[in-house]
C-alpha cells in the first residue's frame, strides 16, 4: 500500500537538530507522535512510499542484513530520485516517524548514556549533507546503497542490484572504498567489471589488506584509461580488473 512520501519543514528540521538533548528520552524510549500530525511534519513530495515494507527492516548488523535492508528501502521508495535523496528533510521525517523504531534499535541500542546517544542521533537521524545521507543516516544509507548498485547493475542484465550489493557491502572497508567513492562507483562499466571479477574471487572480499592492495593496483594501472567509451569492450575491462585482482 503506497502513500505520498512526506518531509518536515526547514524550521522543524532546525528545531529538532538544536533540541536533540532535550528530546533524548523520546529518541531512546519514546516517540514524536504528538508532533507527527502537525502540518510542519507532513509536507508531501511527489514521490511514493510503501510504509508497510519498512516494517520488515532488521535492526541487527552484518553484511547480509545490510543487503536485505537496502533492498527493502529501495522497493519502498521506488521512485525517489537521487536529486531528492540529498534532502535531509525527507530523511529526518522517516527516522523520526515511520522508521523511528528501526533507527533506535539499529543505532542507539549500544548506549543509554545521554551524551553518547545525542551524538549518535546527530549522526544517524538527520542526513544533513549528501555524504551524511549516503553514509550515516539510518534509512538514507540503505537507499543510497541500492541506488548506486542499481546504476551499476543497469548495464548488465545478468547482474542484479542484489549481486552488486553483496559485493560492495561485503565488509565495512569494502563499502568505504567503493560506495563512498563516487569517483569509482559512478563509473558503471568499471564497477560492473569489479562485481563480475570479485564474485569469483571471494578471498579478496574477505581480506582487508588484499582488497586495499587491489584497489591501489586498479588506481595505479587504470590511470589514463577511458573505460566508458564504446571502443572498449566489457571483456577488456573485465580482463583489466581480473589482472589487477590476480596480481595481489
Amino acid at each position: 500500500m503506497t502513500s505520498r512520501l512526506k518531509y518536515v519543514t526547514t524550521g522543524t528540521l532546525a528545531d529538532l537538530r538544536t533540541k536533540i538533548k532535550l528530546n533524548i528520552e523520546r529518541y531512546l524510549n519514546g516517540d514524536f507522535a504528538e508532533f507527527s500530525d502537525l502540518l510542519d511534519w507532513n509536507k508531501e513530495t511527489r514521490f511514493s512510499i510503501d510504509v508497510g515494507l519498512l516494517a520488515g527492516l532488521d535492526a541487527t548488523s552484518g553484511s547480509e542484513v545490510e543487503v536485505s535492508n537496502s533492498l527493502l528501502v529501495w522497493r519502498s521508495l521506488s521512485d525517489l530520485t537521487p536529486a531528492a535523496a540529498r534532502e535531509p528533510r525527507i530523511w529526518t521525517r522517516l527516522s523520526h516517524v515511520e522508521c523511528l523504531g528501526f533507527s533506535r534499535a539499529r543505532w542507539l541500542k549500544s548506549t543509554d548514556e545521554h551524551s553518547k546517544a545525542a551524538k549518535l542521533v546527530h549522526t544517524h537521524f538527520f542526513g544533513e549533507s549528501v555524504t551524511r545521507a549516503r553514509d550515516d543516516h539510518s534509512i538514507g544509507r540503505l537507499w543510497w546503497n541500492s541506488y548506486i548498485a542499481s546504476r551499476v547493475a543497469a548495464a548488465d542484465p545478468g547482474v542484479s542490484v542484489e549481486d552488486v550489493l553483496k559485493v560492495f557491502l561485503a565488509r565495512a572497508d569494502v563499502r568505504l572504498s567503493t560506495i563512498e567513492r563516487p569517483g569509482i562507483l559512478s563509473r558503471s562499466r568499471l564497477a560492473l567489471a569489479m562485481v563480475r571479477v570479485l564474485r569469483d574471487r571471494p578471498r579478496l572480499l574477505g581480506d582487508e589488506i588484499g582488497f586495499r592492495e587491489f584497489m591501489k593496483t586498479m588506481n595505479r594501472q587504470g590511470g589514463g584509461q577511458l573505460f566508458e567509451v564504446p571502443a572498449v569492450t566489457n571483456e577488456q575491462i573485465d580482463d583489466f580488473v581480473a589482472k589487477c585482482a590476480d596480481s595481489v
Binding site: 530520485t81 537521487p82 536529486a83 531528492a84 540529498r86 549528501v130 541506488y147 548506486i148 546504476r151 563516487p182 569517483g183 562507483l185 559512478s186 563509473r187 558503471s188 577511458l226 566508458e228 567509451v229 564504446p230
Partner: peptide
C-alpha cells in the same frame, strides 16, 4: 558526484544539443 551520474555521451563536431532526461544532475 552528488548523484553518481558519470557518463561519456557521444557528440559531433560543431554545434549540438545534449539532453539529460530526469533529475540526474
Amino acid at each position: 558526484e552528488e548523484t553518481y551520474f558519470n557518463d561519456v555521451l557521444p557528440c559531433i563536431r560543431g554545434p549540438f544539443e545534449l539532453r539529460i532526461v530526469g533529475r540526474k544532475l
